[in-house]
């Protein structure tokens, strides 16, 4: 663990339900499921106090939402993959930490709020991740949304606020980013046994990103986020944000032991299970060309400025 981070290790996992609901439909899905299992055991062997999930499949509009209901119980069904089955869940949430995280985000200029409502629709990615990584609620969790309008500075600050809250409460965490690599799925139903990455281009970009992860170059990936978004992300939101949040929460450097436990196709998208563990070594050759951000200043009101 680095000096200024309370995070034991970080995980990057895919949001799709196949590893949870149909792991035997394809050898790749089974491989992802096995990688989730490995991560589950590593979390159990760690002395983490909680799991923090940043999910790209929980979009928010009004600032940043943080799940805070102590016991979140429901049965979730995915919008596209409803025919694979239902996902009943019962998640224990570290409500005290969620409130602290919200407070830390506000101190850094973000608009944030906790959500504590029975029946709140926890997203597919969070349900899959927590069901497979923490099936017995051995430790509590915290889930944070991905604001659909947020860009780099806001997301960097949100990541730093997670670590602020850990420091304040003296807790150690495993952080989990739920996101695909390339996220273009096939737009028709396929035989799962014939699943593959949607295109060679997507696969080549994924392989390059995985090289960075394997080398522990998380901050370099953070710096490449805009390029990644342009190349292999369907333009559903303004930016590819998971690397920003993960890097900011874990300390903004390249000093990690990286391990790619699995990389497989999930209905055409790129699904990987990756672990990043802070280490003393350093790797990286990029000059960082974007300012670091400590405090979110809000909108610049560009539309209301200038001569009329």
């Amino acid at each position: 663990m680095s000096e200024d981070s309370q995070i034991l290790f970080g995980l990057y996992v895919p949001p799709h339900p196949q590893p949870l609901l149909s792991p035997d439909a394809n050898a790749g899905y089974a491989n992802l499921r096995a990688a989730f299992e490995t991560c589950r055991k590593r979390i159990e062997a760690s002395d983490a106090d909680l799991i923090i999930v940043y999910s790209t499949t929980w979009p928010s509009v009004v600032g940043h939402q943080i799940q805070a209901l102590k016991e979140s119980i429901w049965t979730h069904v995915d919008d596209d993959f409803h025919y694979l089955g239902s996902m009943p869940y019962n998640f224990q949430i570290d409500s005290d930490f969620s409130h602290e995280y919200c407070s830390a985000a506000e101190k850094r200029g973000l608009h944030a709020r906790t959500v504590e409502y029975e029946g709140f629709p926890i997203d597919t990615g969070s349900v899959v991740a927590l069901s497979l990584l923490n099936p017995d609620n051995r430790i509590p969790a915290c889930i944070v949304s991905s604001n659909m309008y947020a860009n780099r500075s806001e997301t960097i600050v949100l990541g730093k606020a997670a670590n602020d809250a850990l420091v304040t409460q003296g807790k150690k965490a495993v952080v989990v980013v739920v996101s695909s690599l390339s996220n273009r799925m096939f737009t028709e139903h396929i035989d799962p046994s014939e699943d593959r990455i949607h295109s060679s281009k997507d696969n080549e970009w994924n392989e390059k990103i995985l090289e960075f992860f394997a080398d522990g170059r998380l901050e370099d990936l953070s710096q490449l986020s805009r390029e990644i978004h342009g190349q292999i992300r369907v333009q559903k939101v303004v930016a590819y944000k998971p690397a920003w949040w993960l890097a900011a929460s874990m300390g903004q450097h390249n000093n990690y032991e990286g391990e790619v436990l699995a990389y497989e196709a999930l209905h055409g998208s790129g699904g990987a299970v990756i672990q990043l563990t802070p280490s003393s070594g350093s790797f990286g050759d990029k000059e960082f060309d974007e300012d670091d951000v400590e405090y979110y200043q809000g909108d610049r009101n560009v539309l209301n400025k200038g001569s009329h």
């Binding site: 009004v62 409502y117 029946g119 799925m185 096939f186 737009t187």
Partner: peptide, 30 residues
């Protein structure tokens, strides 16, 4: 707000009874 990427889907059961909580405005709509 039923967003699908693999084709167009239709509700196909005669009844649905549950609680809808808006993921964006849960303070307003349950």
């Amino acid at each position: 707000h039923w967003q699908t990427y693999i084709g167009t889907h239709f509700l196909g059961l005669p009844e649905f009874k549950s609680k809808s909580v808006d993921p964006v405005f849960p303070n307003l709509f349950r």
